[in-house]
Write a protein that binds this DNA or RNA. Structure first.
Length: 717
RNA sequence: GGGCGGUUAGCUCAGCUGGUUAGAGCGCGUCGUUCACACCGACGAGGUCGGAGGUUCGAGUCCUCUACCGCCCACCA
């Protein structure tokens, strides 16, 4: 893990990310533990966190409870087994017909506590309230009605087991059914059968299953059912979605355990509504990802389970008093004072007790569970802003501006952070969030270790440069998946080189020229600066709305046209006599433009711009003020001059290219027919256009747009 | 089952509140090097904007329906 951290830090430094490395923390570090435990204790004191014994989704390999947010569905092969459930003598309005139920989990027949059908289902209405006995085990269970039963599914009547899936939990709770659990925390059927099976005298049958995994038990029970004649036909293969722990390999079981929960609106409509409101107050970039938050919060079906039965993590700062019989008092946990934090209940002792009383009747016992990492990560804003140890910093930086993160952890990191900040501070932890997309492999496939298509950034940095990688990354829009594309990185590299070359040119010809705006006597120069000022406004607005990709695109577009057109147009004038007004104007405009472009590109090409900035400025560009369009925008400038001059120059280049002539080829005559105002603009830059195009005579006339170019005949070889 | 994105040139993608002949880069073709740039430049070819209706003087841009791709959510016996 430490190695991974170093690798990330090395990469991020190499990429020039402006991280304050003094603020890094680990979730089990002292600061994070103190924050986690303090927030927990305060949640506990206010009743926002509670401990409860309840059916819990459980990973049998990790042997820990898991939270709703850590679930994922996987499509799994399974089979419907048609089982015969027997009518009980003297019950049933229409005689003693057996009932056929379909189940994908026949191994849970010993855990069956009821059958349920839809209240409107005529087939089963006569049976509601009657009793039946389960196959193989002969346990009496009621037939009940519940609206969640789907008449279309299977035989229309479901076997409720404790617990086969989350619907069973709902039925168990809402129909007030008993617990008859057989699944152990190790994923194997427990050794001793439920009491009802003992009473029914079928313990020997259960013994055939005890100790087996779900899969093994299913195989065996199907054999037993077949032998007893209670399997109706052969199992019918299906595929169906099954809940998994996102990092687990076997389907989750549901077992009853005592766990810590934080209220998150999952069973409290008022809190849920408040959290939805907070989600609406948050500025999402892009806006539509907010929908994910909405559907997640609306779909919550329980509080946030934060305890884990693992070894490494932040411990709960809690002990329980033991009574004279050694029973723990879970209702009244013993807690430390805040200034004692962090504590480890496994080695620290609660106030008023001694170590000798640990695990002794009349003494105390530690809570040995640890917190889910999200219980700590949900406090990142509080950890980073010094909530427990730097009141001044906290005052100035909380709530924060921005949470940048991935889409897959909206339901965990983002949502949990909102919950914690709301409980503790009554506000959102940040005003804005940006959601990134995924990086896909060059074939637009999701990267996965199992597929072997994972590409790490460092080799790309080494091949194309950090700025090229940044350029590629900045071309990916927020929340849009972006494929690794060396072509785009090459363009970034090209752009960086172009900036170096342009800077060399500008600084080479006007070494220490003045920036005095009064020197801007050329209409073309002023026109270009107007366009540049407009660009600054547009790019600033794009950054303000977190649309960095747009900011880059606009800057880049201006830059290339600046190099191709403006620089070519003013080159002759710029090379002129340093004392001439035209030369001074060009130099001043070029330098103003260069300074602005350097700064506009700085967020993207951090290293290139830092280098060229150092050629002529003091200090780092990354702490230089952002360009100001007001100061840049010259008075009395006509934006048309630059545009029309560039258009004519392009037309001249096109003619030369079509004649397969050099760009340096002389032009005898050019006729520009244009509207009056555009011709006026062109005349304002006429000398520059003639110089740049090597044009001898430039005529203009008002009319429908046309540029007619007559080249001088080629020189004989 | 509910919802959110996407579908624009061979490829990767822009196209903001509807407005003149739909853009960029790559790739492709042609041409061009004394004077910032061959780690280059210029120019060009290439698109029924997924499909069908509709609103409008005008739709890639708005509305309805629909197809396919990706994703999220859901109590999926």
């Amino acid at each position: 893990m430490v190695e991974d951290e170093q690798k990330f830090e090395e990469l991020w430094r190499r990429l020039g990310l402006s991280v304050d490395w003094s603020l890094t923390y680990t979730t089990i570090g002292v600061r994070a533990r103190r924050v986690s435990q303090r927030a927990f204790l305060r949640n506990l004191a206010r009743g926002e966190v509670y401990k409860s014994e309840a059916p819990t989704l459980w990973d049998v390999d990790f042997r820990t409870a898991v939270a709703q947010a850590e679930l994922e569905d996987r499509e799994l092969a399974g089979a419907y087994h048609r089982l015969t459930v027997h009518a009980v003598d003297g019950q049933g309005a229409d005689g003693l017909a057996d009932i056929v139920v379909e189940t994908t989990r026949p191994e849970l027949v010993p855990a069956c506590v009821a059958l349920v059908a839809h209240p409107d289902d005529g087939r089963y209405q006569p049976r509601f309230g009657s009793w039946v006995t389960t196959p193989l085990f002969g346990v009496r269970v009621p037939v009940l009605a519940h609206h969640l039963a789907d008449p279309e599914k299977g035989s229309g009547i479901a076997m409720v087991c404790t617990f086969g899936d989350t619907t069973d939990v709902v039925w168990w709770r809402e129909l007030d059914l008993p617990v008859r659990s057989v699944m152990g925390s190790d994923g194997r059927l427990v050794a001793d059968p439920p009491g009802e099976i003992l009473e029914a005298g079928t313990a020997d049958t259960y013994a055939e299953l005890a100790g087996k995994t779900a899969k093994q038990a299913q195989k065996r029970i199907v054999e037993l059912l077949r032998e007893s004649g209670e399997l109706d036909g052969e199992p019918r293969a299906i595929t169906h979605p099954v809940k998994f722990y996102e990092r687990g390999d076997r389907p989750l079981e549901i077992i009853t355990t005592r766990q810590w929960y934080i209220r998150n609106g999952g069973r409290d409509p008022e809190l849920r509504a408040k959290l939805l409101d907070l989600g609406r107050d948050l500025e999402w970039h892009p806006a539509h990802v907010h929908q994910r938050y909405e559907s997640w919060v609306e779909g919550l079906n329980g509080d946030w389970l934060i305890s884990r039965q693992r070894y490494f993590g932040v411990p709960f700062p809690v002990w329980y008093a033991l009574d004279a019989d050694g029973r723990a008092d879970y209702e009244n946990p013993l807690v430390p004072s805040e200034d004692a934090l962090p504590v480890d209940p496994a080695s620290d002792v609660p106030a008023g007790y001694t170590e000798a009383q640990r695990d002794q009747p009349g003494g105390f016992v530690a809570d040995l569970d640890i917190m889910d990492t999200w219980a700590t990560s949900s406090l990142t804003p509080q950890i980073a802003t010094g909530w427990v140890d730097d009141a001044d910093l906290f005052e100035r930086t909380f709530p924060m501006n921005l949470r940048p993160q991935g889409p897959e952890i909206i339901r965990t990191w983002l949502f949990d952070s909102v919950v914690r900040a709301w409980f503790e501070h009554g506000v959102l932890p940040w005003s804005d969030t940006t959601i990134n997309g995924w990086v896909l492999d060059p074939d637009r496939k999701k990267m996965a270790k199992s597929v072997g298509n994972v590409i790490t950034p460092m080799p790309l940095v080494e091949e194309y440069s950090a700025d090229a990688l940044r350029y590629w990354a900045c071309n990916g829009r927020p929340a849009v998946d972006t494929a690794v594309d060396s072509g785009v990185m090459k363009i970034g590299r090209k752009l960086a080189i172009k900036i170096l070359n342009l800077s060399k040119f500008v600084l080479g010809l006007a070494g220490d020229a003045s920036d005095d705006p009064a020197l801007l006597t050329s209409a073309l120069d002023r026109s270009m600066l107007v366009a540049l000022a407009d660009l600054v406004d547009e790019v600033t607005a794009a950054f303000d709305s977190f649309d960095y990709a747009r900011a880059l695109e606009r800057t880049e577009r201006f830059f290339w046209s600046f190099c191709d057109d403006y620089v070519e147009l003013v080159k002759a004038r710029a090379y002129g006599n340093a004392g001439d007004a035209g030369t001074q104007s060009a130099a001043a405009a070029l330098r103003a433009a260069l300074s602005t472009l350097h700064r506009l590109f700085a967020p993207f090409l951090a290293f290139t711009t830092e280098e060229v900035w150092s050629w002529w400025q003091e200090g780092t560009i990354h702490r230089t003020p952002w360009p100001d369009s007001v100061g840049l925008r010259p008075g009395g400038a006509d934006p048309l001059v630059y545009e029309v001059a560039a258009t004519v120059l392009t037309a001249v280049r096109k003619e030369k290219s079509e004649q397969k002539r050099s760009l340096a080829a002389p032009v005898e005559h050019v006729l520009v027919r244009e509207s009056d105002d555009r011709l006026a603009a062109l005349r304002a830059a006429e000398d520059d256009v003639r110089d740049a195009g090597k044009i001898a005579v430039l005529d203009t006339e008002v009319g429908e747009y046309i540029v007619k170019v007559e080249l001088a005949p080629p020189e004989p070889k």
